[in-house]
Design a protein around this nucleic acid. Structure first.
Lengths: 352, 352
DNA sequence: TATTAGCACTCGAATCAACCGAGTGCTAAA
DNA sequence: TTTAGCACTCGGTTGATTCGAGTGCTAATA
């Protein structure tokens, strides 16, 4: 089930030492030597004993040395063990909780404002890159659709989903419509398909097209034409919101020019991240992806903390943070989970 | 009229040498020594003579030396003279022209797509940061407005301006409206104010409110309420689109970590740039702002090439590129001017 | 008088050796 | 099994040296 299960059986002393090394390293960013650990550890071990354990841990791949005479540094495998088995429980502090509640609550009126606030919030609280990925558009459910004639064959489509997230698009049609026809088509679609997902609507339209009625009834024919045009113009894109990208540069391990350039280019083309989230993650629980576990070279060496959020009707999105492998996983995870829960309840209430 | 007029009287030889130094420096990025110029210049001068002229140019502030035994580098004043008096005429090559035409033409249907394509295009063609600043929203002219009831007091507003750029916003009203009331209010506003700018509409609404009719006629009363709510929710923001921000990291003179961080933070908060464009520029002609001439410390040391574009009804926006002072001003200016003309004609045609 | 050849000088960049010190691995004693 | 002790490693820093591109100045030249 968990691919690192077999390793959870490290001896208590090794676990203790590994934990100290990793949390110290996360704090300071400096390689940790045996003396430092000997002093911190309450077991009163000597540095020589610690050295022995460290050598074992290195042999098993949990630690490595930047060079022969330096202290130890966690490997990705080390971080993995730390996250799976050693992570201290952290709850979000009450001050921070209040801050979050206020920031997302204030967005009250418009839900899309809350959506946009989340990456900003995550970036601000963790000093890393915050993101939010909306559910696939095809999972979104129709509340209202309306067509507006702009000019001869140009039609403006306004789409409102059940959570009242609004989007619009201009279509170039191959035929001229009267505004009254557009109104009727809109009413027909809402009446017929309200509450269905775009995918379901697409299928229904295809079915309708095959039926006899469609060729007879002009309203239905128009509705099919407009509806399919709109659905086809969806390139099934999802909204990927990022914030705090400049925070990346504050981490010394990522601040050399080439890395920075590569990462920023990746942030500009967001599909890398979308793909990663879609492919690697189980939509039922939060997840941490560490360094090389994410195989996209464009994001190489970054760690990802992700938690799903859910509309009442099941459409699932993701939110989380992105940062260097040297990250405060405990804190990041706690925040990400807290915010995803909060946002999910916000969404379900709105939906009612 | 032009604050550098007095200096245009440099001797021909000095002009020639300054021109060579600056264009070489723009090309290579290396300080230029006297020998290099002596070889290039067709007057067949010796390096010693060139040195004398260079010393004069330095004394007058057109050049400087990074250190005592290095070649010369242009100062901002030098660039200014170069741009004002020495700039070679450049026309956009036919291949590039075709490329631009195609990219903006293809956006045919939706004008906002062309708007978004422009910064990308500029960034691509100049390897710098491309931007586009839309006109102030208050200058935009109404074509259509429509209200849609979402939920009790939440009203969706859809606004279409005369160039068919669409925007929407959700309002939290303090009173409940029926959809039929919303429809009437929308029709009233369109009928009454179509073609007027938001500023003008705002004034008219205030005037209306004072009149007797407003208290009697429910349609007018609703229209006033909804219209002012919408206008007040405008924070008079303008759209500032940027693209190619990662390009600045390719310029060695800007690639040190601190500068990069500062610039990226500035790009995230776009108001610096908006302010700069609003304050410093005459909306009737293209303009180049060089290094320290732009006094915003957040953008310190960058040069800005800007050209206005115009809707038929007079609303003015800006587009251009942003890059290091060592920039190919001739090329950048030619491209920016070409694209602004093209976009202006696109806008006026659409408007018809 | 304007130009140029010649030369001493300057200063950043690159190279190299020496040194320091944190941290290690190993061995032998406790 | 733990620990004290010690030789060893290796990155980082410091300082001296050299190299070379480019300058300013002076004296000779056209």
């Amino acid at each position: 089930m968990n691919h690192t299960m077999q390793d959870i059986l490290l001896e208590p002393r090794a676990r203790e030492i590994l934990k100290h090394i990793i949390s110290s390293y996360i704090l300071t960013g400096e390689p940790i030597g045996s003396r430092t650990i000997a002093k911190i550890s309450r077991e009163g071990l000597s540095s020589a004993s610690v050295r022995n354990v460290m050598a074992d841990l290195e042999e098993h791949g949990y630690l490595s040395q930047p060079h022969a005479s330096a202290g130890r540094v966690p490997t990705d495998k080390g971080y993995r063990y730390y996250v799976d088995a050693l992570l201290p429980d952290v709850v979000v502090g009450s001050r921070e909780r209040a801050f979050i509640d206020q920031n997302l609550g204030r967005a009250g009126g418009e839900l899309s404002a809350a959506m946009e606030a989340i990456p900003k919030l995550l970036a601000h609280l963790t000093s890393q890159v915050g993101y939010l990925l909306s559910p696939p558009i095809s999972d979104v459910r129709l509340k209202h659709i309306e067509f507006l004639k702009l000019h001869e064959r140009r039609v403006l489509v306004i789409f409102v989903d059940r959570t009242e997230i609004v989007s619009h698009r201009v279509l170039d049609m191959d035929q001229d419509f009267e505004q009254s026809d557009l109104d009727r088509a809109g009413r027909y679609l809402v009446g017929e398909f309200s509450g269905l997902s775009l995918n379901e609507i697409r299928e229904s339209l295809v079915r309708l097209m095959a039926e006899e009625k469609a060729t007879v009834d002009r309203i239905i024919a128009n509705a099919i034409k407009l509806g399919t045009s709109y659905l086809d113009s969806e390139s099934d894109e999802r909204r990927m919101l990022l914030d705090g990208t400049t925070n990346i540069m504050n981490h010394p391990e990522l601040s050399d020019t080439d890395t920075v350039r590569r990462l920023f280019q990746t942030f500009e083309e967001k599909h890398h991240l979308v793909k990663l989230l879609d492919q690697c993650l189980d939509p039922n629980r939060p997840r941490v992806l560490i360094g090389s576990e994410n195989t996209d070279p464009a994001l190489g060496g970054l760690s990802l903390v992700a938690s799903p959020y859910r509309h009442a009707d099941g459409a699932t999105g993701w939110l989380g943070v992105l940062g260097p492998t040297r990250m405060e996983y405990d804190r990041a995870l706690a925040l990400v989970v807290y915010i995803s829960r909060l946002f999910s309840t916000l969404l379900t209430h709105r939906n009612a």
